[in-house]
């Protein structure tokens, strides 16, 4: 299971480490930031970085884009990069934009109902609702009495 930290190894993995950093930045925005729009942007960054990992695994050094010449006369010398990750990521990008648009639509509705798009404010409002409910229906702990 050993691996050597040769120069080749480090260079060959640098891209993955870089993309990992990007992913984590995106994830951090999603988890830590309270603004709902910013969360969605963070999600986009997170996903795009994942796409980069996929695309980079399909690349062959010296390869070219997997599109044959128009006349389909294929030169056996030419190396083509693996097209499958491209296809997967095309699908994933579409799924991503679908999620983004739904998320943004939800944000618009949240803004209309809560008049804010900050998570902290929303939590405050919801806590107030829960307190009002508990006043009527008995609170969660002492509800039995």
């Amino acid at each position: 299971m050993g691996f050597e930290l040769t120069q080749e190894y480090i260079l060959g993995h640098m891209n993955y480490w870089l993309f990992s950093v990007l992913m984590m930045t995106g994830l951090y925005i999603v988890v830590a930031k309270g603004n709902l729009v910013k969360k969605i942007v963070g999600l986009n960054i997170f996903q795009t970085s994942v796409f980069m990992v996929y695309i980079s695994m399909g690349k062959i050094t010296g390869g070219t884009a997997p599109i044959f010449p128009q006349d389909m006369e294929i030169d056996p010398e030419v190396v083509y990069s693996n097209p499958l990750p491209h296809v997967l990521i095309l699908t994933a990008i579409v799924v991503g934009i679908a999620t983004t648009s739904l998320g943004l639509a939800l944000i618009v509705r949240i803004q209309e109902e809560f008049n804010t798009i900050e998570e902290d404010d929303i939590l405050k409002i919801e806590r107030a609702i829960v307190q009002a409910e508990n006043a009527i229906h008995g609170d969660a702990m002492g509800g039995r009495a």
């Binding site: 080749e8 993995h13 990992s20 992913m23 994830l27 988890v31 830590a32 390869g63």
Partner: peptide, 25 residues
């Protein structure tokens, strides 16, 4: 959040250790 991110990041890096080199045919 920082903790969550660091743990995930560590898992990611761990996963990359056995990956083939970039561009390797």
């Amino acid at each position: 959040p920082l903790f969550v991110v660091l743990v995930t990041g560590a898992a990611l890096i761990y996963g990359t250790l056995d990956m083939p080199n970039f561009g390797s045919p």
